[in-house]
Computed example of a mutant assay.
Amino acid sequence: MKKDTLAVDQEWQVEEDMRTVLRAKEIQRDPKRMAAVRKLAQKKMDDMKNISQK
């Protein structure tokens, strides 16, 4: 039974990974969304830089 559970969990994970990759491709094709992602990523990096300098 444990093997069956692991197989189901692995299958679910692969399907979830596929959805994530497809969603990432969708976001990358949308210039407005990618601009927002880059802006947020820059803010997060700046925040981390400020934390590490204290």
Results as ranks from 00 to 15, higher is better:
12 W>I: 10
51 I>K: 01
52 S>R: 11
15 E>S: 09
7 A>L: 12
18 M>V: 14
10 Q>M: 12
38 R>P: 01
29 R>M: 09
45 M>H: 07
33 R>I: 01
47 D>I: 03
17 D>Q: 11
42 Q>N: 15
51 I>D: 01
22 L>Q: 14
11 E>K: 14
8 V>F: 05
35 A>W: 02
17 D>W: 07
4 D>Q: 12
47 D>Y: 00
16 E>S: 10
9 D>S: 08
40 L>N: 09
40 L>E: 14
49 K>F: 01
46 D>K: 07
4 D>R: 11
5 T>H: 10
13 Q>T: 04
42 Q>G: 13
25 K>D: 11
50 N>E: 07
36 A>V: 02
26 E>V: 06
20 T>C: 05
4 D>G: 06
50 N>P: 00
8 V>H: 06
37 V>T: 10
23 R>L: 11
15 E>N: 14
41 A>R: 11
52 S>A: 09
45 M>R: 13
47 D>H: 02
27 I>P: 00
33 R>L: 14
46 D>L: 12
18 M>N: 14
26 E>P: 00
44 K>W: 03
25 K>V: 13
4 D>S: 12
48 M>Y: 04
4 D>A: 13
42 Q>K: 15
26 E>R: 14
34 M>F: 01
20 T>H: 09
15 E>F: 04
26 E>C: 02
44 K>N: 07
18 M>F: 11
16 E>N: 12
6 L>Q: 05
44 K>H: 05
12 W>Q: 07
49 K>G: 01
20 T>I: 13
15 E>G: 10
42 Q>D: 15
20 T>F: 08
45 M>A: 15
47 D>F: 02
22 L>F: 11
48 M>I: 08
27 I>G: 01
15 E>H: 08
3 K>F: 08
35 A>D: 13
25 K>E: 12
29 R>I: 01
7 A>C: 03
2 K>N: 08
